[in-house]
Write a protein that binds this DNA or RNA. Structure first.
Length: 434
RNA sequence: GGAGGGGUGGCAGAGUGGUCGAAUGCAUCGGUCUUGAAAACCGACGUGCCGCAAGGUACCGGGGGUUCGAAUCCCUCCCCCUCCGCCA
């Protein structure tokens, strides 16, 4: 949610955000400004009537106490008249306020000035490419790296068919070394985050409507979530939602910032409309595991925090020896709530393509204002919204895909990076270590 | 799921129809005193909205109602606690 005062002062920047993010009709801004004016007018008249009503009632009190009913009678008549006026004004003020609030939820965050304007994948800027793609030339000219789904099947790591039988497509079972690899990666990512100063936290896997509104999934993007309608709950699409809402309606002292959390959770996404090679194997699932990093920071520090958070995620990729590239996402690819976003993509040798494994964003005050997460700049000062950030650190399935594809050997086994051995208990997939 | 009790400011805790946005204590902040600190004393100390400001207005879990007037009475929803049932 944007600051209404900001919209009044910079309507052009909000129109521009609507356009460059393709988040709606720029004229929404003008509708908002009209509702805003109406609301303020209605509210002012309402307050005037309320004031007169309060004054009258205050006069009646002592008279009634003294038993002077007859003297109170004309005042009571006057206040009854004011009351009917009040009812109408109340209705007007309320409907104007509701209309404005709804519009406020429909206006996207304004991109940071460093964000490139664009609408297509090509408009995202490849900021850096780190590490080198695996070199299979030593395996002979005939060697063709396999996609991960073939490796997974060969070693019985992931059972897609039984997952489809038991739950549906996109809900695989992990088996044997596959399951152990999942558990090891989760542990590895969490340990790394704690080492980087994050506090480990285990959130609920369902959220209520207010939480969905707080982080921006509701309204309008509910369709991405599985809903337990009878109980008014949603399965979390990411730990960002419960962890950010952990501090909903709270006020921090400036000295207590920044606050950083790391959470492992499964994530549930309906992914309606996906198809083709994008959903093959582990590329896109309805349920997947992820370690999420969330930070609450002072507004002056949020862009430094964004780079630091990004580095925390990149460190995991370094340790896993996975080649990756860092993308600065353009306005059109950025999403409704973000002010600036980086994506990290790993190279997947068997598929010959880049796979997104992390998305690191600064939301500035956008979520904080929705969720009423504030800080006090000085002791005794008026609370202000703080800045929230989050990033994946990291999402598992595509990491597994890349580890399998990049680590494959001519004999069909897969070598895992050194950093992982103590977590998995094995260095190679497809042959049991002693 | 059934029965009962309860939700008041950062915390504790008064207030059961009329200057109550709310006593008091603790915590916090500023000051006096002190070589320094503690103690003591003095003062400040919730949030939203409208307004340049003065000020106004709303909020005592959420919503609705009764009344000239509601933290206080009524209805309803949510949450917490106790007991019973069920249960990992």
């Amino acid at each position: 949610m944007l600051d209404p005062a900001f919209i009044r002062q910079h309507p052009d920047r909000v129109r521009e955000a609507l356009r460059t993010k393709r988040a709606g009709d720029p004229s929404l801004v003008d509708t908002f400004l009209a509702r805003d004016a109406e609301r303020r007018e209605a509210q002012t008249s309402l307050q005037e009537v309320q004031q007169r009503l309060n004054e009258t009632s205050r006069q009646i009190g002592p008279l009634m106490k003294a038993g002077k009913r007859d003297e109170a009678a004309p005042l009571i008549a006057a206040s009854n008249a004011l009351k009917s006026q009040k009812k109408d004004l109340e209705e007007a003020a309320r409907s104007a306020d509701e209309a404005q609030q709804r519009l406020l939820l429909d206006l996207p965050n304004v991109p940071h000035e460093s964000v490139p304007v664009g609408f297509a994948d090509e408009d995202n800027v490849v900021v850096a490419e780190i590490g080198s793609k695996p070199d299979f030339s030593a395996f002979g000219e005939d060697f063709e790296p396999l996609p991960h789904w073939e490796l997974a099947e060969r070693h019985g790591l992931v059972d897609f068919e039984r997952g489809a039988k038991v739950a549906g497509a996109g809900f695989p079972f992990y088996v044997g070394q596959g399951a152990r690899l999942q558990r090891g990666l989760i542990q590895f990512f969490l340990d790394l985050a704690v080492e980087h100063g994050y506090t480990e936290i285990q959130p609920p896997l369902v959220i209520n409507e207010a939480s969905g509104i707080g982080t921006g999934q509701i309204p309008d993007k509910e369709a991405m979530m599985y809903e337990a309608e009878r109980d008014g709950l949603f399965l979390i699409p990411t730990a960002e939602v419960p962890v950010t809402n952990f501090h909903r309606d709270e006020i921090f002292e400036a000295a207590s910032l920044p606050v950083a959390y790391a959470a492992y959770t499964p994530c549930f996404r309906r992914e309606a409309g996906s198809y083709g090679k994008d959903v093959r194997g582990l590329n896109r699932l309805h349920q997947f595991d992820k370690v999420e990093l969330v930070q609450f920071v002072h507004p002056d520090a949020s862009y430094d925090a964004l780079e630091a958070l990004r580095q925390d995620a990149e460190r995991a990729l370094d340790l896993l020896e996975l080649p990756f590239r860092r993308l600065l996402m353009c306005t059109g690819d950025m999403g409704f709530t973000q002010a600036k976003k980086y994506d990290l993509e790993v190279w997947s040798a068997g598929q010959g393509r880049w796979l997104e494994v992390s998305s690191v964003s600064n939301f500035e005050a956008f979520q904080a204002r929705r969720a009423m997460i504030r800080y006090r700049p000085e002791p005794g000062a008026k609370p202000e919204p703080l800045h929230t950030l989050n990033g994946s650190g990291l999402a598992l399935p595509r990491i597994v895909a890349a580890l399998l594809e990049n680590g494959q050997q001519p004999d069909g086994t897969v070598h895992l990076p050194e950093a992982l051995h103590r977590y998995t208990g094995f260095a190679t997939i497809g042959q049991l270590d002693v």
